[in-house]
């Protein structure tokens, strides 16, 4: 079914990605005026660029903290890599940022941007083909699912050969690629990706890196979690280490 496309990757990227938007303009509204009006003007200028700010964030499950309380901020155009051991609360942190969970304590300041969430559950339908899944995602994110857009997305994801197959018949890596397609329709959003590299082959990991680089160049924010081995290769990232409560000093002291 899928005919070979005469495909120029750069051109397609420009088509799918609208021209870079000035995210910083929308970011200032959440800034605490008390801090901004403080004496130190330099701080204010630095704060100007801060998009996401997390203060003393704590989440408890059955009254036990999941991770040690977190403070960090992310600027427009930054990619934050959340590292931590298994069970340290990386996924919980991302779910808190996505608004699926509510924090027990602390605050999360988010700009008025949509959030693109990709978790362990991919949100694609097994009984629909790759093409139908992408068409739904595009329409769902308010984009016109023209053949051109969908074909370009499919070739971006390197899924041409299986485009007409049911998603349920694909391998885990191919399904992951299909789910990554949703990100291409949400170029203005804050990307929250939980283990985006899992199940992917070398080529698939390059696809993720390419998407991340584009998003970064576009001024978008990405926060991705990984347990360590698989990290972005070709772009600049800042790291945040999440310390699980069970690994913390406080926990050891409470046992003693």
């Amino acid at each position: 079914m899928s005919k070979p496309l005469k495909y120029n990757p750069r051109a397609a990227l420009v088509d799918i990605y609208p021209p870079a938007k000035d995210n910083t303009a929308q970011c200032t509204h959440e800034l605490d005026t008390q801090i901004v009006t403080a004496v130190d003007k330099q701080v204010a200028e630095q704060e100007e660029n801060v998009c996401i700010r997390v203060e003393n964030l704590l989440f408890e499950r059955w009254f036990i903290p999941v991770f040690e309380s977190l403070n960090f901020s992310v600027k427009a155009g930054e990619t934050l890599l959340v590292r931590g051991t298994n069970g340290s609360g990386k996924t919980t942190l991302l779910r808190l940022l996505a608004g699926i969970l509510d924090p027990t304590e602390g605050r999360i300041h988010l700009p008025e941007l949509p959030v693109a969430w990709l978790g362990h559950k991919l949100g694609i339908k097994d009984s629909l083909s790759v093409r139908e899944n992408l068409q739904f995602m595009a329409r769902f994110h308010n984009m016109q699912p023209t053949d051109k857009l969908i074909n370009e997305t499919i070739s971006q994801l390197d899924l041409e050969r299986v485009a007409e197959q049911d998603a349920g018949s694909l391998s885990a890596g191919q399904r992951k690629r299909c789910a990554l397609g949703a990100l291409l329709f949400q170029s203005e959003a804050i990307w929250l990706l939980d283990e985006p590299y899992s199940n992917l082959d070398d080529n698939g990991m390059k696809v993720v890196d390419r998407l991340l680089t584009l998003h970064q160049q576009n001024g978008g924010i990405t926060i991705l979690a990984t347990h360590g081995a698989l990290t972005p290769q070709s772009l600049e990232v800042r790291e945040l280490i999440v310390l699980g409560y069970q690994d913390s000093e406080r926990y050891r002291e409470s046992l003693a």
Binding site: I100, K121, F140
Partner: peptide, 11 residues
């Protein structure tokens, strides 16, 4: 399959 999480975070 995670579609609900997508609905919730979609805005």
């Amino acid at each position: 399959d995670g579609s609900l999480e997508q609905f919730l975070t979609s805005g």
